[in-house]
Design a protein around this nucleic acid. Structure first.
Lengths: 100, 100
DNA sequence: ATTAAATGTTTAAACTTTTAAACCAATAAT
DNA sequence: ATTATTGGTTTAAAAGTTTAAACATTTAAT
């Protein structure tokens, strides 16, 4: 592993962090099955309270794996995982190169 | 994302968790550069105390990304990331299929 | 303007993780 | 056998995370 690989590791940190929680994994699952969902729609499907869901959505948004679109009073959340997938691809390539 | 993808997500949890910490990333870096290292050798390179390093090594070992070989009083830690890389590959494939 | 609906924010409590200090166990060398 | 070296374990404190309750904000409809 070189400095280059370490950089990729560090860049991936926020995504790895955000993915390593089953509640957040569930939310991503819901969004992958539904295109766009509001906080309340996600809460219905989840075991968490609305504020907890809202909190996890914030984390997911900060990590760049979801995005929001406001329509009236409702906020529709949807996946935006292009960057995350790119990063994970790079990470995987680095791991295969240096760690096997 | 289907149930199948969720399973992969869940299986990856321990690896994602263990990778989403910069101290542990550092340890993996040291091991990728050095083949085999003792706790003390890792501690020299790290900013952590020896018990802290020992603790993180235990987590890494439980997640299956490293292994130990004892030679006399010394324990040599080394990478064993084949499984982790396989899992991450599957995860990535699921993400590309269902989340883009 | 008031009210209702949807959602975000703040705060406090519970829980988990991380760390270091002190201690213990095993091996090897004298 | 005694001692030194290596490394694991336990414990307690500190820091961080997660959750829910109460409160605040924003938009839409009457």
């Amino acid at each position: 592993m070189g400095k280059q690989a370490l950089d990729i590791f560090r860049q991936s940190l926020p995504i790895l962090q955000v993915l390593s929680d089953s509640n957040r994994q569930d939310i991503l699952l819901f969004l992958s099955e539904n295109e766009k969902l509001t906080v309340n729609e996600i809460t219905e499907r989840s075991k968490l309270s609305r504020p907890a869901v809202s909190h996890h959505l914030k984390l997911l948004k900060n990590a760049g794996v979801i995005n929001v679109e406001q329509i009236g009073t409702q906020r529709y959340y949807y996946l935006s995982m292009q960057e995350a997938v790119e990063l994970l691809k790079k990470l995987l390539a680095a791991l295969e190169r240096d760690c096997l």
